[in-house]
Design a protein around this nucleic acid. Structure first.
Lengths: 170, 170
DNA sequence: ACAACATCGATGACAGATCAACTATTCCGC
DNA sequence: GCGGAATAGTTGATCTGTCATCGATGTTGT
């Protein structure tokens, strides 16, 4: 037997449409944030994640979880944003390894200025064109996929016992 | 009036779940391709796009369209891949500006080795966990969003006549 | 035929992301 | 409490993506 179940045309169409939507939508939103504020999209996301936290303070590792970013990426990003006066680090009593991140006044102003336009954009490009049923389907689908990814991570991902290269492909 | 229609909880959940799914799914697939082949995910995508073309040859601008990448990105990527022996450029009679890209034997072997595993992964993480209704909803939703993005691009994007900064935020 | 303009692709400079250490601290078992 | 493991965060090297620009060719209008 061949063993590979390729995607049929219908499945391909779904997969590709999703990939393309994501690519173009993120690109558009990023360009838009950059064009209408002094923030990059990454800056924007960090500030939003921060403002979701009560007190507007958060540990770096918390942010990295809520953003889904690697700690190193976040660390570099925060360093840059601190340099540009958008964020401030505060030392963390009770865990001397750690640090809190807080938005500066400048940072808060920037996010408050950028957010309305961005939200309007998300609405116009994503929420409004879709039916409630489509939105619900997306929610449940996305949550299912995330659940699969999580259980895999827990198990230690069995890839079916297939080839495993340690290959440093650089 | 305030004028900003923020996302309600339900809408936020949808939007965030989608963003997170995309982030984690792409991350997982990329890591997987890198781990089981000598290809990066970008390499993989280029080779797939190429093999979708009859003859396995394509102009750079065609590839850049089917991938949704900027021409510059593709150019750099192709240069790197050429350097690693995965691709070859062929000169283009009939338009002396242009060039064709072809996969080398090495490139073809790499993609043929990587594809089955990748497809299995897409199935396991995305297609299989979802119901046909969910998949259909995603297809139609994605295509609607893409349609909006396209008509906007055609019109010249009216952002509602809002502030427009030329701000080079670097 | 020719000027004006558009398209193809490459390039170099730079911003951002990833990866692999590394330091400092905390947690845990005994 | 002590030693080893885990966790928080940083850092520097390297790779990738983006932006502006350029040279070369093609296309169009007159």
């Amino acid at each position: 037997m061949n063993g590979v179940r390729w995607l049929d045309e219908h499945e391909q169409r779904t997969w590709r449409a999703l990939q393309f939507m994501q690519l173009r939508l993120a690109g558009r939103l990023a360009a838009d944030v950059a064009a209408t504020s002094e923030l990059s999209y990454a800056d924007y996301l960090v500030l939003v994640a921060l403002s979701d936290h009560p007190d507007g303070r958060a540990r770096l590792f918390e942010l990295s979880e809520s953003l889904g970013w690697e700690k190193s990426r976040l660390s570099h990003q925060v360093t840059r944003m601190t340099g540009r006066g958008l964020l401030r680090k505060e030392r963390c009593d009770g865990d001397r390894r750690g640090a809190f991140v807080v938005a500066t006044e400048t940072g808060r102003e920037a996010i408050e200025e950028a957010a309305p336009h961005h939200v309007a954009m998300v609405r116009r490009l994503f929420i409004d064109p879709l039916t409630p049923a489509e939105l619900d389907a997306i929610t449940s689908a996305a949550e299912k996929v995330l659940a699969v990814l999580d259980t895999e991570a827990a198990d230690g991902h069995h890839d079916g016992g297939r080839l495993r290269k340690e290959h440093p492909n650089r």
